[in-house]
């Protein structure tokens, strides 16, 4: 990939090479090799092949082509996502731990998918009827540690994670009479980039459900319930309503749940911090960081950071964080 006239540090160039090799090339080679081997087996395989196993044996069947292509396709999509997400690097040109996780996960996903798919076809070689396929639980269990070890190797091959430390700026209460009452409210939501990614993922989920509805309607209920739950969960974390008043800080998702409330007497201090969602929280949504902070992380930039009396820190990103923090400091002072 050549980019026009971009001033890239040697460190970033090195990291990008690692991202491409470890996060894209190796996973794709593994998936391609698995696909090639599986393709060689086609003459020996029953048609259709077993593609899904229940507790008593195979209970789902599909064409051999889809078993071969699906892992390849998913590996390709995730590898592209991992490269895309980590391409820019951290603010100091290093790799953030969120980026490293994406690249290592690309390796993990490629191996689990390829080994499971290849294993599930391997046991069906020579069978007349896929209904007689033996259980493949052992293969799935074997694939997991192999993938985990390879993902660990991938992690170790990547440079040490760059940690972002931004200095919180303590917010001062708003000047005014002791009798004044304040109310601050704002809506905080994810940016268009995240919306596109979530939208694409939800569209893929909807298509998968539609395919299931057509091909296997009697087994639609569970996937549909899980699918709708995931969609509701995703949508609920995209937009949040923040209210600050004499009752403290209240953060509520667009659909009303979940909600977080911090009363004024639980607040030790309020500050404004600069947040990097990928680098500090590993992504977007309701998040926990490795350093113990939690919060609603929806955008890069300013956020309110509330330190509770018990020392725990809670964060909400928003465009007017300064005003919000000052309002909360006013309330907490009383």
């Amino acid at each position: 990939m050549t980019l026009p006239a971009e001033n890239v540090s040697p460190q970033l160039t090195r990291n990008r090479r690692l991202i491409i090799v470890i996060g894209v090339v190796i996973p794709l080679v593994i998936a391609l090799a698995a696909a090639f081997i599986m393709a060689l087996w086609i003459p020996e395989l029953p048609s259709p092949v077993a593609s899904h196993w229940g507790t008593t044996g195979p209970d789902g069947y599909s064409t051999v082509g889809s078993v071969i292509v699906l892992p390849l396709l998913m590996t390709l999509v995730f590898a592209a996502l991992a490269a895309f997400a980590s391409w820019k690097g951290g603010p100091n040109g290093g790799m953030l731990w969120g980026h490293k996780i994406m690249v290592a996960a690309s390796m993990f996903l490629s191996i689990t998918l390829s080994v499971t798919a290849a294993g599930s076809l391997a046991v069906q070689r020579g069978l007349e009827n896929a209904e007689n396929a033996p259980a493949i639980g052992g293969i799935a269990i074997a694939a997991f540690p192999i993938a985990l070890v390879m993902a660990l190797f991938a992690w170790l091959m990547l440079p040490a994670a760059e940690y972002i430390t931004s200095t919180p700026v303590t917010a001062k209460p708003i000047a005014g009479a002791a009798t004044q009452r304040v109310h601050f409210s704002t809506t905080t939501r994810v940016g268009p980039g995240v919306v596109i990614i979530v939208g694409a993922a939800l569209a893929a989920l909807a298509i998968a459900l539609a395919v299931q509805a057509v091909s296997n309607p009697e087994q639609l209920l569970l996937p549909a319930v899980i699918g709708l739950f995931v969609i509701a969960l995703a949508v609920s974390t995209l937009s949040w309503r923040v209210t600050i008043d004499q009752r403290g800080l209240k953060v509520r998702s667009a659909i009303g749940f979940p909600r977080i409330t911090i009363a004024p007497d639980q607040i030790e201090s309020v500050a404004v911090v600069d947040v990097n969602p990928m680098g500090e929280f590993g992504g977007y949504g309701w998040r926990w960081a490795p350093d113990g902070r939690s919060g609603i992380v929806l955008s890069k930039g300013d956020a309110i950071e509330v330190t509770r009396m018990n020392g725990k820190k809670f964060i909400v990103t928003m465009h007017d964080a300064q005003l919000g923090a000052e309002t909360l400091a006013t309330v907490a002072k009383k």
């Binding site: 708003i174 005014g176 009479a177 009798t179 004044q180 009452r181 304040v182 109310h183 601050f184 409210s185 704002t186 005003l323 309002t327």
Partner: peptide
């Protein structure tokens, strides 16, 4: 949006 009121004000 910030709303401030002071009930003690005239």
């Amino acid at each position: 949006m910030l709303v401030r009121v002071d009930p003690a004000s005239e």
